[in-house]
Write a protein that binds this DNA or RNA. Structure first.
Length: 945
RNA sequence: GCGGAGAUUCCAGAGCGGUCAAAUGGAAACGCCUCAAGAGCGUUUGGCUUAGUGCCUUCGCAGGUUCGAUUCCUGCUCUCCGCACCA
């Protein structure tokens, strides 16, 4: 039987839509359930990653509907921020890479490509594409409530403005300074994905240490050295400047600094007033003395060609003992008199310089920098790469393992890790240093301009660092249900660690800050309470946006103020109060550290406690056949390809069978292919066997009924926990296995009522996973309404009987053993004897169990048992059984003799039937004169004659 | 480095102190059934086996607790996710 899945899919999509069965309205007489898939960013087609995260609320929604809940499952689209706008810009610039991305999506028409130069077209194009793909795969969404989120959606725009006004009222939006990676051409921060080079490079905080020139006649002139290690200032022996560069003297905030030109250019963006005074030739500086901050000791300025004017200030403080560069620099200059002569330096004075060690660390000598050079066999300051490595290693080691030595005054004995912060603070306070931000590496913007660090000084922040707010957010976290719970520590950590978040942008798509129109609201800040928009989305978007203001949202969502005079206002309030908060918002685990935690904060700031979130669903990242999904590996799967290749149902089941919890789910191509045929078999079996069978009621029917009830119970539990993988396995594979055994045991004459009940139950349980085929079968077996509207099967606790399972297991093992023995003897026996153990053996087992629970000590157990009269007479056998049971575990002895015997009688008939033999099977109790005295409890032995 | 999650047999993945050579599913092999393929059914997929209700070696590595550890503890190694102004 081959089934035309695509035809079935179209048919039911159409019917669902026509009957509008997924459209949900507030109904105070019904329990509500609001679930959601975090709105996706619409700049490409949806792929497997979307599919998995989407399927979790989808299955959950369908499950809750079956349970009788009124389910709201809406879907909106996200487009704020910079990706779309930069992509559009790149299309305009005809950038190869960007054009290829569109071409790979099948967009080749020149006319159409031109349209993609407009950011709005991206939204216009991709939203329908997403919608189409979601519908094709059978997502049960209430599409009336969709919206998208840019300033182009005026209603949503009003909503976001309201949100920010509320945050501002509570002083959660603050103004401040912030270092950002900045492109001077685009006049925008340069995010990781808008870089053509330098992904992952970040601003790094340097300390600018001030070294006043000693004995300077007129005014205080300061040489400024940039360092990451201010704590090493106790070990400074000299300064390095690059003799091949010219430095600049400039007035910086009322001081006269000498630094490299490159540094000066950067400083301009870092909140400093700068006036260039003059160029300084290095000859003017070399051989002079400067004084060290704190100690005021005087040290020489020496030439070091390794000083890079583009890094830091181009002036380096030399700490030979703890910096490999400085160590080698000092060695070189001491060994080469020519250098001193060349720059007219006092060679004797240079030779007096001795490294000062100030940090002690296990496994290193007095001068760790020397060790580091020797370890890597570095001989010269020209070996830049090796030196860089050595430096990094040593810095790391000293930072975490180093202890400040005696010569560091009050820092003596402290860890470097702590001392560093302390020293930094002190130097800043006494104006002996400044903060300077430098990139950790070269960053090139997509526009091919080299990026710098800029201190933005009128930047708006959402103050997630606010301590009281953190406490309230924690309260919201305590209340929320997490699927799975094990994500909770990550949330706790994030709340603690979160600092003020820059929420304003100069460019991009989005809503303008209501009180400062030059700024746009950044896209992770405008996407925190957006789920509150769904309950009213379909009404509000019918209203003239001019009429929407803060008072409208105050009234609907906060129950504040007089009822505004606009259409649908009562409905909107009812809808909101009925549906909110959401019960399950599904997203990838990567959103914990921003979006989801932000959402918690924002809910507590804006809404009363009853509207704080009820549930988050977290999941991992999809892999394909065990490998990371990526375009370069060629295993990148788009949602749109699934229905044609595997059918929507098989795809849905495959992805849900791929994983659960926060593990990365795996998409198994082979499984997807083979599952399609399994669905065909399901169809055939159900349609051919529904309402057929016998009216007899036998032990085996009781067993099957028990298994069915047990399965329903388990599956219900796993569905509640969103452990959809386990649930799907239990309802499909495990139940089918039971069904096969049942059919075998009844010679394909199942009980009619029971089998029909089974088919119905299984179909309903499967329908959240494979809705199309289930609808089709449901209709074929004569059901009138949609299976989507059926009732989730209930289980009857009284019908679950574990004993029946044990009996069936026994029958199965006897059967298997019998077959095995018959195979061995290779004759057709006339009769067969099955021996079950004597009663005393069972008694022994029970006694063993009791004794074990008392002492758990084998020696004592054996002693206690052997002194009992009833076991004495079986002396040796008792020992044997005891040894065996103690070795293999004694937990399995539960049966009592008679039950065992009865079950075997039951098995006997079955064995006869199954083996299609007319043989005589005798059941006997274990007896002395038979060779069968080995028979152990729980396992009959067989003798064939 | 910090925070979080992990490491199981060909693969995915159960396992929560004895019923474990380890569920379930994929895949593969063989057999039955068939003209044939698929489906279905059965067997097999750590090693040894005198074939036994047998023995040995396995659950990242190394120790420990226990009569007993895949399961508990300690240390180590490795993998994945996050560490921000970006969706």
């Amino acid at each position: 039987m081959t089934i035309d899945f695509q035809q079935i899919e179209r048919k039911w999509q159409h019917r669902w839509e026509k009957a509008r069965i997924f459209e949900a309205d507030a109904d105070i007489n019904r329990k509500k359930f609001f679930c959601h898939f975090t709105y996706p960013y619409v700049n490409a087609y949806p792929h497997l990653g979307h599919f998995y995260t989407l399927m979790r609320p989808e299955v959950f929604a369908r499950f809750r509907r079956l349970q009788g809940f009124n389910v709201l499952f809406p879907q909106a689209w996200h487009a704020t921020g910079s990706p779309i706008i930069t992509a559009a810009q790149r299309v305009k610039e005809k950038e190869e890479k960007q054009l290829k991305i569109l071409k790979d999506m099948g967009i080749t028409d020149q006319e159409q490509l031109k349209k993609f130069e407009n950011p709005e077209y991206w939204i216009e194009y991709f939203i329908p594409e997403f919608t189409k793909d979601f519908k094709a795969i059978g997502i049960s969404t209430d599409w009336r409530r969709s919206y998208f989120t840019t300033e182009l959606n005026q209603w949503y725009d009003k909503f976001i403005r309201w949100q920010f006004n509320k945050l501002k009222e509570k002083n959660y939006v603050i103004k401040g300074k912030f270092p950002v990676v900045w492109c001077t051409k685009c006049r925008n921060p340069v995010s990781d994905h808008s870089r053509s080079e330098g992904e992952g490079e970040t601003p790094q905080e340097f300390t600018l240490l001030k070294f006043p020139l000693a004995d300077h006649a007129n005014k205080r002139i300061i040489l400024v050295a940039a360092t990451l290690r201010p704590e090493t200032l106790f070990g400074i022996t000299n300064l390095w400047i690059n003799p091949k560069t010219t430095y600049i003297q400039a007035k910086v905030n009322d001081e006269h600094w000498i630094i490299s030109k490159e540094c000066l250019d950067k400083l301009k963006f870092q909140d400093k007033s700068i006036e260039i005074e003059k160029e300084i030739k290095t000859a003017e500086l070399l051989g002079k003395y400067v004084s060290i901050p704190k100690s005021n000791a005087k040290v020489l300025i020496l030439p070091g060609e390794f000083c890079n004017p583009s890094i830091g200030s181009g002036i380096v403080m030399s700490v030979p003992s703890h910096a490999p560069h400085d160590w080698l620099g000092l060695v070189e200059i001491k060994n080469d008199k020519a250098i001193a002569e060349k720059y007219h330096l006092n060679f004797a004075a240079i030779n007096l310089i001795t490294p000062i060690s100030l940090i002690s660390m296990e496994g290193y000598s007095e001068h760790p920098a020397k060790d580091a050079c020797e370890k890597r066999k570095i001989k010269s300051t020209k070996q830049l790469e090796l030196l860089e490595e050595a430096k990094k290693d040593l810095y790391k080691a000293e930072f975490f393992a180093g202890i400040m030595k005696e010569n560091t005054g009050i820092y003596k004995g402290r860890k470097v890790e702590e001392a560093k912060e302390q020293i930094k603070k002190e130097l800043l306070q006494s104006n002996q240093s400044n903060v300077f931000y430098e990139l950790t590496g070269r960053v090139i913007c997509r526009c091919l301009t080299q990026s710098i660090i800029k201190i933005v000084d009128d930047q708006w922040f959402i103050d997630y660092g606010n301590k009281e707010w953190k406490e309230i957010a924690k309260k919201a976290l305590a209340k929320i249900r997490l699927y799975p719970e094990l994500s909770r520590p990550q949330f706790e950590y994030t709340i603690d660690w979160l600092k003020a978040w820059a929420c304003s942008r100069e460019e991009g798509l989005g809503t303008k800050l209501p009180w400062d129109q030059k700024w746009l609201i950044e896209s992770l800040s405008d996407s925190t309470i957006y789920l509150a928009f769904y309950p009213i989305a379909h009404y509000i978007q019918k209203i003239n946006p001019e009429k929407i203001n803060d008072l409208v949202f105050d009234y609907i969502m906060l129950d504040k103020g007089k009822q505004p005079d606009i259409e649908h206002i009562a409905e909107m309030k009812d809808e909101f109060q009925y549906w909110y908060p959401f019960d399950f918002n599904s997203s990838g685990k990567d959103l914990i550290q921003n979006h989801l935690t932000f959402a918690l904060f924002n809910h507590t700031a804006i809404f009363p406690e009853k509207y704080w979130p009820n549930g988050y669903g977290l999941n991992g990242w999809v892999t394909v056949d065990g490998k990371k999904m990526s375009k370069s590996l060629g295993n990148f799967i788009l949602m749109r390809d699934l229905p044609t290749k595997y059918s929507a149902d098989a795809s849905r089941f495959t992805i849900m069978n791929g994983g659960e919890n926060m593990d990365d789910p795996n998409w198994d191509n082979q499984f997807a292919s083979s599952f399609k045929t399994k669905l065909e078999q399901l169809y055939t079996f159900c349609t051919e066997n529904y309402n057929k069978g016998s009216d007899e009621w036998r032990n085996i029917d009781q067993w099957f009924e028990s298994r069915l009830n047990e399965s329903i119970k388990k599956v219900t539990y796993f569905m509640e926990e969103t452990l959809f993988r386990t649930a799907s396995q239990k309802m499909f594979f495990e139940l089918n296995k039971a069904l096969r055994w049942y059919l075998k045991r009844t010679n394909n004459k199942p009980n009619k009522k029971l089998l029909s009940h089974f088919i119905e139950s299984q179909l309903i349980m499967l329908s959240p996973f494979t809705p199309f085929i289930c609808e089709e079968i449901w209709e074929t077996i004569g059901k009138k309404d949609f299976i989507a509207k059926a009732s989730w099967p209930l289980y009857d606790e009284d019908k679950i009987n574990k004993q029946l399972d044990i009996e069936e297991q026994l029958i199965e093992t006897v059967l298997n053993d019998t077959t095995a023995v018959m195979d061995l003897v290779k004759i057709t026996p006339k009769s067969m004897k099955l021996f079950v153990a004597d009663s005393w053996k069972y008694d022994l087992c029970i006694a063993l169990r009791t004794e074990y629970n008392k002492t758990k000590n084998p020696g004592i157990i054996i002693k206690n048992i052997m002194i009992r009269e009833e076991f004495k007479k079986h002396g040796e056998d008792v020992m044997k059984i005891m040894q065996k049971t103690l070795k293999s575990g004694i937990m399995n002895i539960l049966h009592n003799d008679d039950e065992e015997y009865n079950t075997l009688c039951n098995a006997k008939q079955y064995i006869e039937a199954e083996l299609k033999l007319s043989i005589e099977i005798l059941l006997e109790k274990d007896s002395e004169d038979k060779k069968s005295q080995q028979a152990l409890p729980g396992k009959p032995s067989i003798i064939i004659k």
